[in-house]
Design a binder for these strands. Sequence first.
DNA 1: CTTTCAGCCTGACGGC
DNA 2: TGCCGTCAGGCTGAAA
Length: 268
Amino acid sequence: MPELPEVETTVAGIKPYLIDTMIERLVIRQPQLRWPVTQGIEDTAKGLKIENVSRRAKYILISLTTGSFLIHLGMSGSLRLITNTDLLKKHDHIQMHLSNGHVLTFHDPRRFGCWLWSKYDHALLEKLGPEPLSSNFSGEYLWNKARKRKAPVKSFIMDSRIVVGVGNIYANEALFESGIKPQRRAGKISFKRYEVLAENIKVILSSAIEQGGTTLRDFTNSKGEPGYFEQSLSVYGRAGKACVKCNQPLKEIRLAQRSSVFCRSCQS
DNA sequence: CTTTCAGCCTGACGGC
DNA sequence: TGCCGTCAGGCTGAAA
């Protein structure tokens, strides 16, 4: 599933092909995504120039002269650039034909993603916390926000109002690296441990982005996916297997309906 | 205010 | 072989 590094890599991959090009045609084949695709955007978008492509949290923003598209890849979404003559795949829901001959194609089997239009600011971006890789995000910030919070620390760091872009995989990994048990209450964790945790979140996310960047050769291929999924994960998906640090079997529990894997002796 | 939980979907997988 | 049930998961917004 696309986590923040995949989104970042996607933006970097498509941006050079989109910037300063004109939208010749927008085709919506399946408007029923997580939210219905904004009605009438085929007409709205026609003939407009793409001014910028950026990322906020796991949202992709395509800025035009009169507004912007807000795209989320959900669980199974991807964007790829193809040409007019390429065959459509099943679940290719939206296509944006550009004046340079490229066709930006939104593919999403589970349809948890979205493609919305807004003239001004998108409401979905309003309540978001800081970017994890920005200087606004630190151990001190986390510690302050955690005062009196009873929620498990894993739910806390996955709350987009606290910090954006920490999905289930990276939450599991960062807590393991930091030696913090996922179910520990957020308000009961020391300042010092939050400094370690914030640093680990930054290191893990930025190294994943780096891997994505290095494996990304040509985004105009048929896959449309950054190919760095082979990165080694210490705990996620390894329940019952040996801890990479102490060899004890990893334990799996569910927190807020999400699979949480940790080591009972390395994390406390 | 904080926290929990339903719901949106399809594909993969295990059991029979 | 194929059918069926279960699960996975990001995120929002309603409910508690």
